[in-house]
């Protein structure tokens, strides 16, 4: 799997983890759940978004780079 696709998968997994935290904390009215939302859920989703942007960057780089001779032969 290319770097871009690997990052894309990581991005999606991190966002999934963050969204699960959102879901788990949504129905509870307690400061601890708010802390879990703010300190665990939000950073996971933001990190996932960052990975997504990194995947776009890697994809762009892969498209711009000329194919290596070994890849061309394969």
């Amino acid at each position: 799997m290319s770097v871009a696709k690997s990052r894309l998968r990581w991005a999606a997994l991190l966002i999934c983890a963050g969204l699960i935290v959102f879901l788990a904390t949504l129905f509870s009215v307690h400061p601890l759940y708010f802390i879990a939302y703010a300190m665990i859920g939000c950073p996971l989703v933001l990190l996932g978004m960052f990975f997504y942007l990194a995947a776009l960057w890697a994809d762009r780089k892969e498209k711009l780079e000329p194919e290596s001779p070994s890849r061309r032969a394969g």
Binding site: M1, A12, I15, L26
Partner: peptide, 19 residues
């Protein structure tokens, strides 16, 4: 919650089909 679940399902689909 519905929005989060839909979002979760789509993100999971991306993780599954990323390659």
């Amino acid at each position: 919650a519905l929005l989060v679940i839909i979002s979760l399902m789509l993100a999971a689909a991306v993780a599954w089909r990323a390659a």
